Computed example of a mutant assay.
Amino acid sequence: MPSVARILGVIAVVVGLAGGGFAAGRLTAPESDSTASNCAEPRKLYRHYVDAITPDQEVAAKRTNGRILANTILQNPGCFSTADRASAQTILDTIDQGVQEDTLNDLKECVADATDEYSWSDC
């Protein structure tokens, strides 16, 4: 009989450890439903701005939509892939570079149009 008591005791310990491990795992596991619901709004906004960018838009509107699109991805890293985040950062860098080039081109044009010293004040 003592061997049966020992076996039952070992079984109780094993079940207790397994149950405790399972409970600890459930308590520390990320909740996929919560993540999915948290990503619904950013993905909806992403889809809206992807669809809003058209070839016939003005450059300023494209830049604004591109910034909103990129910031939506970058501010919600758990909702988008690494490739999406890298593309978003590239979009922001390209937009910033375009703005700087436009500013420089406007300044060059202003300087070229300046014919006297008073025209320089408009640049």
Rank of each mutant, 00 (worst) to 15 (best):
R43Q: 08
N38D: 07
L17D: 06
W120T: 03
A23L: 05
A60L: 07
M1S: 15
I53K: 13
E109A: 03
T94K: 03
A112K: 10
C79G: 03
L107Y: 12
D122C: 01
I11R: 06
E101Y: 06
T82Q: 00
T115M: 07
C79H: 07
E41Q: 10
A60R: 12
V14Y: 03
A40D: 10
S119I: 00
I73V: 15
A88Y: 10
V13A: 11
Q75K: 14
V15Q: 06
V50D: 05
C123L: 02
I68H: 07
A5Y: 15
K108F: 09
V10Q: 14
T64W: 12
N105M: 13
G66M: 06
R67G: 13
R47P: 04
D116W: 03
H48W: 05
T35C: 00
N71R: 11
T82F: 02
S3D: 08
D51W: 03
D96W: 09
A112D: 09
R85V: 13
N71S: 14
T64N: 15
D56V: 06
A52D: 08
K62P: 04
V59C: 05
G20L: 06
V4A: 15
E101R: 14
P42T: 01
N71W: 11
M1R: 10
A5D: 15
L8E: 14
C123W: 01
D56Q: 11
S34D: 07
I68Y: 13
G21V: 10
L69G: 01
V14P: 04
V111R: 11
Q57Y: 11
A88L: 08
E41D: 04
E58R: 00
Y118I: 10
C110S: 00
R63K: 14
R26I: 12
M1N: 12
E117H: 08
C123P: 04
G78N: 10
Q57S: 14
Q75D: 15
T28D: 07
I68T: 14
G25V: 02
A60Y: 09
S32I: 01
A5P: 01
Y46E: 08
E58C: 02
K108H: 12
D33C: 05
L27Y: 10
T94R: 09
V99S: 13
P42Q: 02
V13T: 14
W120E: 03
T103V: 13
I68D: 14
P55R: 13
T28F: 07
G78S: 08
A52L: 15
Y46A: 05
D116E: 01
P30L: 00
P2M: 15
Y118E: 11
D33K: 07
A60S: 15
N65P: 00
R67C: 12
T64Q: 15
D84E: 09
I95M: 11
T72V: 13
S119L: 05
D93S: 13
Y49F: 15
I7P: 00
A88E: 09
P30R: 01
D93L: 11
T72R: 08
I53M: 11
T28A: 11
T35F: 05
A23M: 04
P77I: 04
L74E: 05
V59M: 04
A70Y: 14
R6V: 09
G98H: 11
V10T: 12
D106C: 08
N65E: 00
G21W: 07
G25E: 01
P42D: 01
A36Y: 12
Q97T: 12
D106P: 12
D93N: 12
R6Q: 15
L45H: 00
G20N: 00
T90F: 04
S3N: 09
S119Y: 01
V4E: 13
G66F: 09
P55Y: 15
D102G: 15
